[in-house]
């Protein structure tokens, strides 16, 4: 078993721990941002597990999970958690409705192309991120679902990375809560490392995808734990926007 077979499983274990940690916080505090983060992280974990499985063998429903949760939806849902953290206004609920509707439509579109998957193109020695475009039909041939992926990823990037950077900046500017500054920087760095890994995969360096995802899982979990860690003299800073870990 090669390193590329092991790394996605390690990422999955980290993401499962991260998901459980976040959902436990939701169970205690009932804040919607924990719920959305938990759902998004669970999607990320499911995508990582599917990727790990597809590094060993083919299964079209595992591919379904990988594409839908791992490639398309997870960033948007994690990002929506950050939106709930930064604002509790009514327009956030409108965004949630759009996200849920978009996710349902994407699921239906993905189900529609399942009979068109060309599993003869599958090679277990290549990461699924490098070969999925040969397994799925093109947009012109009916895989409209592929058009939906950039929407979720752009939204996730803006909200997750943008939200973390904005929170870090606010606390840095106020010169308070260094743990939250550092925690949000780590979360942003983790999310960006997925973007790097995906871009490098697109450029033909797919072997770096798994290490990029593992790095992302470690950085985001470390960032969350750092931001959430209590400080000796910490008090709530009402005027600052609450960052991850609140």
């Amino acid at each position: 078993m090669s390193l590329n077979n092991v790394l996605p499983f390690v990422s999955t274990l980290i993401m499962v721990s991260f998901t459980v940690f976040v959902l436990q916080r939701y169970a205690v505090r009932r804040s919607p941002h924990f719920l959305f983060w938990g759902i998004g992280l669970a999607m990320f974990g499911a995508g990582s597990f599917a990727e790990a499985y597809l590094a060993i063998a083919w299964n079209k429903w595992v591919f379904f999970i990988w594409y839908l949760f791992g490639a398309a939806l997870n960033a948007g849902w994690i990002g929506q958690g950050t939106v709930y953290l930064l604002s509790r206004k009514k327009w956030v609920h409108v965004l949630t409705a759009i996200l849920v509707l978009g996710s349902i439509i994407t699921t239906v579109l993905m189900l529609q192309i399942m009979p068109k998957l060309d599993e003869s193109q599958f090679t277990p020695t290549i990461s699924i991120g490098e070969q999925y475009r040969f397994i799925m039909p093109s947009v012109q041939d009916g895989a409209t679902v592929r058009l939906s992926t950039p929407f979720f990823n752009i939204y996730g990037l803006i909200t997750l990375v943008g939200g973390a950077l904005w929170s870090a900046f606010l606390f840095w500017r106020k010169r308070v809560l260094p743990n939250r500054v550092l925690g949000n920087v780590l979360i942003a760095a983790g999310a960006l490392s997925i973007g790097f890994a995906s871009t490098l995969t697109r450029l033909g360096y797919g072997s770096l995808l798994y290490i990029g995802e593992l790095l992302a899982a470690i950085l985001m979990f470390a960032g969350f734990l750092t931001a959430a860690s209590p400080q000796p003299d910490e008090i709530p800073v009402a005027s600052a926007t609450a960052p991850a870990g609140d």
């Binding site: 990375v161 870090a168 260094p178 500054v181 973007g195």
Partner: peptide, 29 residues
């Protein structure tokens, strides 16, 4: 309050640079 140490090179030099770099990277992505 828990404050950022006033003489911290990490928070005074490194963090602002990394925030700007990551903001630019985000915009590129």
């Amino acid at each position: 309050r828990t404050h950022i140490p006033p003489n911290s090179t990490f928070y005074n030099k490194f963090i602002p640079v990394i925030l700007i770099v990551m903001a630019i990277m985000t915009a590129i992505f």
